[in-house]
Write a protein that binds this DNA or RNA. Structure first.
Lengths: 208, 208
DNA sequence: CTTTGACTAATTAATTCAAAAAGTCAGAAG
DNA sequence: CTTCTGACTTTTTGAATTAATTAGTCAAAG
């Protein structure tokens, strides 16, 4: 495939615009112009803007989840994998930061049922990936026997909570410093989380 | 004091209105009417609405912090105290739920410098109270030697993060079920947190 | 099957204006 | 002098109107 797939081109063009200006400050006409397409051409491939947004989200999510999975397979230690995950998330959310910024109008796109379903499935997938990581830790005898799905979800919710909190306080545009602060807090809590599920068979708590 | 302190009466009257309808749906005239005061009487005691709001916040915060402190002194075990704290927070945020709900206009009051300073100090105070609790745990040999201030802040940030997250998803009016869900998540994460800082001198991790 | 120019319909942004709320003040009451 | 009020002014908000932008359509052409 020499990337003549118009549909794919449109998605990529949309991502560029969305990443720069956000979903609401990007018009369908602009996306078309960038590609030297006509507007109806876009509507030939996508029924409406909402579906284009969903297609974009699908692409970015699968891209992200692939990264998460390969990261998990690369790192030998499950503890390290969980910490690395935080960097991965940071990179992703910085790269596509504008997608997170929503004025009151963008909420309509976010409240769309299909979109919410997509996000829900993405979360489920991420939870199950992390769950596998925790299972590996258990098998290696490094983690206690726990409900891995529940713990994985709790882990993600905690990370998300810290981010949302930061985003609220520094809205709408957090600076680089607050991003660093967030990263540190997330890593601290992740370390604590790891300590909390660690199996101290040797009788000594990790004091690191 | 037979509660003839007008200033105090005004604050109490404002709390009633604020708790029912929120800050923005409460007018100074209404607060005055409730108390059979004239509006200028309010302005005799408070320079403006913002300062009344700050006085209300001060009162509620000191009330809350007193509860937190007495709760901490009552419970013998530091672990239990941390878990109890979550119930305390829940009770408080349910009681004054309307104060949390802000439309776009209420943000002006929240962004006020004096108000933010107040909230910052309140957080510092709460952090130091929890820090004391952690120190007691360390002295008793139940917790590892840790930076108690840092850990206390992390603990609070995590709880807040989970709440903010829930509030976003179920905005503007979370139902009773999502409150329960939040409570459970907060307790799970608190338990994990406790496990993470526990001193397993006996060579066995708490599997509870 | 694709694509387009020229269209319509729906949304958003800007403007206006009336109503509501915040805040003021000269002076009264104790 | 301290506390309070009725009658005010100023500021803010909300609804209504309109203009402009943007989403989305369609008949027809390549």
């Amino acid at each position: 495939m020499v990337e003549t797939d118009k549909r794919e081109l449109i998605i990529k063009g949309a991502i560029k615009r969305f990443a720069h200006f956000g979903v609401n400050k990007t018009t369908m006409a602009e996306i078309a112009e960038d590609l030297s397409f006509s507007k109806p051409a876009l509507y030939y491939y996508f029924p409406d803007k909402q579906n284009l947004i969903i297609a974009v989200a699908e692409k970015l999510i699968s891209e992200y989840l692939l990264e998460v999975e390969s990261n998990l397979q690369l790192s030998a230690e499950p503890e390290a994998a969980l910490i690395d995950l935080i960097d991965l998330r940071r990179n992703f959310s910085q790269k596509y930061f504008m997608l997170y910024i929503g004025d009151e109008h963008s909420e309509a796109y976010l409240k769309n049922k299909a979109f919410k379903d997509l996000m829900r499935k993405a979360k489920e997938k991420e939870v199950s990936i992390i769950s596998v990581c925790l299972q590996k830790g258990i098998q290696k005898g490094r983690f206690k026997t726990i409900d891995t799905m529940k713990m994985a979800e709790l882990f993600l919710d905690t990370l998300k909570g810290l981010r949302v909190c930061m985003l609220m306080e520094n809205s709408p545009f957090p600076n680089a410093d607050s991003f660093e602060l967030l990263l540190n807090k997330q890593k601290e809590v992740a370390q604590l989380f790891i300590n909390g599920i660690k199996n101290y068979g040797d009788g000594r708590a990790d004091t690191k």
